[in-house]
């Protein structure tokens, strides 16, 4: 019993579990929109672009959430603008911007001596390094995004299913799209420390995609996605302590396992 509870004895582990819970719930809730609006490439793009912001904040001694947050939100709004107005395809824009910004981050980082170690923790996350002030930021941003989703729920649902008819009926579809992209950017920033740049897209997509297999209405899909997300982050973090593996990777592997279980369950229900 003491062995099973061992991870909870350390203050840094307690912080990590609270952060993981917030990240799991938030990512998979937003992930419901990401999956249904087919935004997963955008999520990946925002995460990679924010690396430039992380490095700039790091070099100037500022909090990495601020640097990542500013760049992520600007990227999200820029992507939204190109999507609405642009003559270049969205796909191309994200591809160009996200690799360009990411390269800028690597370029700046590579000029520093301690390059290799730090790069690793940004790419793959280090939830065990969450400091008390980070935790407050994570919880604060989670509450802001959660409340916004609740307040805008009907409009977000309608504009996700049928943005054109929603707009004809007087609902401002573009405003909802921008609001969603900004929330997505904030969510990604919150999740960066937990799973890192490379794996954050998985946490956005996988739990929601698993929930999609097993539900036939929007709200149940969102609730089940949140459960899958929380189970993945909490379970993954817990397991990683015993198997001595990267917490981010364990979390994403667990989410992937849940996804295939959901596919299997869907298949069994049909038989």
């Amino acid at each position: 019993m003491t062995l099973l509870l061992e991870p909870f004895h350390y203050a840094f582990m307690q912080r990590a579990f609270v952060a993981a819970l917030a990240v799991g719930l938030l990512c998979s809730t937003m992930g419901t929109y990401v999956v249904l609006r087919k935004l997963s490439f955008i999520g990946d793009g925002i995460a990679h672009a924010s690396f430039a912001g992380i490095v700039i904040a790091y070099l100037r001694g500022a909090n990495f959430y601020i640097g990542a947050g500013i760049v992520a939100v600007l990227t999200a709004v820029g992507i939204g603008f190109v999507h609405r107005r642009g003559r270049i395809s969205l796909d191309t824009t994200i591809g160009v911007l996200f690799t360009g910004m990411f390269a800028l981050g690597v370029f700046l980082m590579s000029q520093q001596r301690s390059y290799a170690v730090d790069l690793q923790s940004f790419l793959f996350g280090d939830i065990l390094a969450v400091q008390p002030q980070d935790l407050w930021l994570i919880l604060g941003l989670s509450v802001v995004v959660g409340v916004t989703v609740a307040v805008l729920f009907r409009g977000l649902l309608y504009t996700t299913f049928d943005p054109v008819v929603a707009q004809a009926s007087g609902i401002k579809s573009p405003a909802y799209e921008y609001a969603l992209l900004v929330m997505l950017a904030l969510t990604i920033v919150v999740a960066l420390q937990a799973v890192g740049i490379v794996l954050v897209a998985a946490l956005l997509v996988t739990p929601a995609a698993a929930a999609y297999q097993l539900t036939s209405r929007f709200s149940p899909m969102m609730i089940l996605a949140a459960l899958f997300g929380a189970a993945s982050t909490e379970g993954g973090l817990y397991l990683s302590y015993y198997v001595r593996a990267s917490s981010g990777a364990t979390i994403v592997l667990l989410a992937t396992l849940l996804f295939f279980l959901a596919i299997g369950l869907k298949y069994l229900r049909r038989v």
Binding site: G155, F161, A166, S169, I171, R217, P220, M221
Partner: peptide, 17 residues
């Protein structure tokens, strides 16, 4: 899209709320 017929028709009310 994960929605029932009811869910889709109910969206017609959203602009009014």
């Amino acid at each position: 899209f994960p929605a029932t017929v009811w869910d889709v028709v109910a969206m017609g009310r959203f602009a009014r709320l």
